[in-house]
Amino acid sequence: MKIRGKYGKTGAISFEKGKINQEYSYIKRNINLLNPGKVIEEYINALFCFLWTIICSVKDMLLMYRDDIKKVLYRNMLKMNLAEKPNNLNKINENTKTKPSLSRKNAGNNWQNAQTTVSAHAKPGKKGCITKYIAIDCEMVGIGRYGQNDMLARVSLVNQKGEVLLDKFVKPIEPVTDYRTEVSGIRPHDIQNAENFLKVQHEVLKIIEGNILVGHSIAKDLSVLRIKHPHKNIRDTAKYRPLAKLVSRGGTPSLRTLSKSILGLDIQNGEHDSTEDARATMAIYNRVSAEWEKHIKRREQRHKSNHHKHGHGHGRKT
Rank of each mutant, 00 (worst) to 15 (best):
Y240L: 01
I227P: 00
K171C: 13
L152W: 04
I262R: 07
T257V: 14
R180D: 05
G147L: 09
K260I: 00
N193M: 12
K220D: 15
Y146N: 15
L255Q: 10
K199Q: 14
H202D: 15
K168H: 09
N211K: 15
R256S: 14
A244C: 15
R241V: 06
I143S: 13
G147I: 08
L265T: 04
K206T: 14
G144A: 10
A194M: 07
S217N: 15
S184M: 10
K260R: 14
G251P: 00
I218F: 04
E195D: 11
F197Q: 03
M151N: 10
H229Q: 02
L166K: 00
K161R: 14
I173D: 14
D266F: 05
K161E: 11
L157S: 05
H202K: 13
H229W: 02
Q148N: 13
V164C: 06
K228Y: 06
L246F: 08
L205A: 10
T177L: 07
I186H: 03
E195H: 12
G264M: 11
I143N: 09
V164W: 01
I173Q: 15
T177S: 15
L166Q: 01
I227W: 00
V183D: 02
Y146K: 15
N196G: 05
K161N: 14
E195Y: 12
K245I: 12
I143G: 12
I173C: 12
I212M: 07
A244S: 13
G142T: 09
Q192I: 02
Q160K: 10
D221Y: 03
G210M: 08
E182S: 13
L255W: 05
G250F: 04
K161F: 11
F169Y: 15
P230E: 07
I191A: 07
G144C: 05
G162L: 00
P188V: 09
Y179K: 01
S217Q: 13
L255A: 11
P175D: 07
R235S: 06
D178R: 12
L246R: 03
R226L: 09
L246P: 01
D150E: 15
F169I: 07
R235P: 12
L263W: 05
N211F: 03
Q201C: 10
V141W: 10
D236M: 08
G162Y: 07
E163G: 08
S254N: 08
D266G: 06
A219L: 06
L263T: 02
I267L: 04
L205V: 10
I262N: 11
E203A: 11
V170R: 02
